[in-house]
């Protein structure tokens, strides 16, 4: 079945969310968690699938996420009828009373980090019950000394916890360029470990000075990412239930917003069409 397709909701794309190509929406928790809110974040829009994307569960921290944060996240998920939540495979803080980095750093890919991350994911899944949790692979600027590869680490977390994989295709693309590995092999290696999959797509830019691809969510999705997305859908098959496009800067015009969503849907429909015709 073709996955639901949608955008991470931003004020700039709200006007086009009723486009026929769009039937899903992702809510960024930190944007929706306004203590003065009186309306649902999705307002009167109806989607086949809504997911809440968090930034501060900090699943690779030594301590699990705090109850207040979990409660607030759950409230937004319930208010908006979300069927899944997600966050990143990294750490943004040390402990509950500690400091916040402002962005997620990759954990050292070690056995003990794997144990801590798996325990935190279990804790999150226990808390959310039927609302499935998806863990996103991050784009990083560096890696700490470790005992396994990122793909091995991610695979083991997925196998141990049974959580879903939020495959950020652009993050894999960026890391593959920046750290010299094969993006296709990475996805082929991890995909069998995931029981359920959602995807993120975005566009960044090549930073000449840093000699790195920066996943800035500021440009159209590159053609190479679309190719990788197509392959990811083929590998995921029916496990993939949603694809979200992220854009946070240099917002396109209306045609740009609609065009990108339609392209994402067209590829999904092409990938899933042969399967449909056999029934």
């Amino acid at each position: 079945m073709t996955p639901a397709i949608g955008y991470a909701i931003r004020e700039q794309n709200r006007p086009i969310l009723s486009d026929p190509a769009i039937n899903a929406a992702e809510i960024t928790f930190e944007r929706a968690d306004d203590p003065l809110r009186v309306d649902k974040y999705v307002r009167d829009m109806e989607f086949d699938l809504v997911s809440v994307h968090a930034l501060k569960l900090s699943v690779a921290s030594p301590e699990g996420p705090g109850v207040n944060y979990l409660e607030a996240l759950k409230a937004i998920a319930i208010e908006n009828g979300a069927e899944s939540i997600s966050d990143h495979m990294g750490f943004t803080r040390d402990g509950h009373d500690g400091v916040e980095l402002g962005h997620f750093a990759p954990p050292p890919y070690t056995q003990v980090a794997l144990d801590a991350t798996s325990r935190n994911v279990d804790l999150i899944q226990d808390y959310f019950g039927d609302t499935r949790f998806y863990l996103e692979n991050i784009a990083y600027l560096f890696q700490f000394e470790g005992e396994m590869t990122e793909a091995e680490f991610l695979k083991k977390v997925l196998e141990r916890t049974g959580c879903g994989w939020l495959l950020d295709v652009t993050n894999v693309y960026a890391n593959a360029i920046n750290f010299g590995y094969d993006a296709y092999e990475f996805i082929e290696e991890v995909m069998p470990a995931a029981d359920a999959v959602q995807m993120h797509l975005a566009g960044g830019y090549w930073d000449e000075k840093a000699e790195m691809y920066i996943d800035s969510h500021s440009h159209p999705i590159p053609q190479d990412v679309f190719k990788l997305y197509r392959r990811s859908l083929e590998l995921a098959g029916d496990k993939c239930n949603a694809v979200f496009i992220e854009r946070d800067q240099n917002f396109p015009d209306e045609a740009g917003w609609r065009g990108e969503a339609r392209q994402v849907r067209e590829i999904a429909e092409e990938v899933y069409a042969p399967a449909l015709s056999t029934h």
Binding site: P62, F91, D94, P108, Q111, E145
Partner: peptide, 19 residues
């Protein structure tokens, strides 16, 4: 790379607080 949970706590705390 550390092998104990306490060691991991110390490692991440040190990285996070300095970064």
């Amino acid at each position: 790379a550390t092998t104990t949970f306490e060691g991991y706590r110390e490692q991440i705390t040190h990285y996070a607080q300095t970064m």
